[in-house]
Structure formats: structure tokens, C-alpha cells
């Protein structure tokens, strides 16, 4: 399954990957602040070889939303 995404999120936030799941979002995760969010999406871009629009940056605020954005880009 898509552990790569959760691992990047864990590295960005500085938390153990075991604390993250499909429900994790900016809203329910203290460490996922606005600075972490930019770092997260920039890291995802590099690791998945994609480039997101500013609107997508604003939408990708949960693990579920990120998976939808990656899928829309045809990323694995």
C-alpha cells in the first residue's frame, strides 16, 4: 500500500509513521502546521515526480485528499 506517502509525512512532521493513518489531517494533527504543509507538498512533488498547482496545495490538507491529488496526477 502507499507507505511512501505516510513515510514522507512522518519525516516532514518529525513523528513516528505508526501514529499516522488514512484519517490523519491538518485539522487533527498539531505538528502539521502551515510551514510543515508547504514542506510536505514540496517533498511529495520531488518523491512522486509531480508538480501541483497552488489550488492543489490548498486542497491537499489530509492524507485522503493527498491520495486523491496523487491519483488525479496518475501517480502510483
Amino acid at each position: 500500500m502507499n507507505d511512501k506517502l505516510l513515510q514522507i509525512l512522518a519525516d516532514t512532521l518529525g513523528v513516528d509513521v505508526g501514529t499516522l493513518n488514512e484519517e490523519t489531517s491538518m485539522e487533527n494533527t498539531a505538528a502539521w502546521d502551515s510551514v510543515a504543509h508547504l514542506n510536505l507538498v514540496l517533498s511529495l512533488e520531488q518523491s512522486f515526480g509531480q508538480r501541483f498547482s497552488p489550488d492543489e496545495f490548498m486542497q491537499m490538507q489530509s492524507v485522503a485528499a493527498i491520495r486523491r491529488a496523487l491519483a488525479a496526477h496518475g501517480a502510483p
Partner: peptide
């Protein structure tokens, strides 16, 4: 390090 904020954040910690 991979040229990503995630990799540098890990190393910086």
C-alpha cells in the same frame, strides 16, 4: 540526502 524538505528536516532534527 534526497533534495526534499522531508529528508533535510529529518537530518536537521
Amino acid at each position: 540526502l534526497a533534495p526534499t524538505p522531508a529528508a533535510y528536516l529529518q537530518a536537521a532534527r
